[in-house]
Amino acid sequence: MGRIADAFGQGHKALIGFVTGGDPDLGMTERFVLAMAEEGVDLVEIGVPFSDPIAEGEVIRAASERALSSGTTLDGLFGITERLREKTDVPIVFMTYFNPVYKYGVERFSMRCDRAGVDGVIIPDLPWEERGEFMEARGDKARVELISLVSPTSAARAEDIGRGAEGFLYCVSSLGVTGMRRDIGTGIADVIRTVKSATDIPCAIGFGISSPGQARAMAELADGVIVGSALVRIIAEQGRESEKPLREFVRSLRAAVV
């Protein structure tokens, strides 16, 4: 079994944390990832900064800009992943828009993921219908898994997407872009039920989960929860002093997600 599968086999619901790579710089990202892993996050998503992150709300968009101005590149992120692998086995997944991957070369990207210890990749602008190009270029040459997404509007397609999914299924909680929401509808629950009737792929819910209470409620609907903007906001506010508040927040999430 790969590391991603391990994340969902811990006897509790999986807690997934997201930080934007290179915000405020690569060295800090390395420390934040390690801190989150130590506080019990089961899987870490590292966001690859992009000039035009169309699925992101204000918080992650701003983090992306900070990371780009600190000079963050894919190679830099592979570099810190390699260093992290000397210290932790926490599953690491890159979240990136397709263009940086395409420009890097999908085959080269996949093989570099394997070498660096990146277990999966989430590409929000590469929907199910367009994943063929990635899958062909990666082929059997690399193990890195392409994480698919479903959303409350996936209805008719959710079953197919679930059946062919790798790693885990990223279940988008609600319409719109990423970011904290006070209320999260239950539309995604129906989609998860559809998926679960067809396959046993682990399902994790993300988008808008910003408090331990929300994390607990969402975890009941799925196999795990993803917290992004709420963590990134701590970094936006505390910058280089974020490690301690990140640890405290992750600890509170961990206590809620059981």
Partner: peptide, 22 residues
């Protein structure tokens, strides 16, 4: 090739949430 192609160009690279709308 997927839908809406002009040679290698085109396609529909949008987030999952928008797929149902397009």
């Amino acid at each position: 090739m997927t839908k809406g192609r002009y040679g290698q160009y085109g396609g529909r690279f949008v987030p999952e949430t928008l797929m149902s709308a397009i």
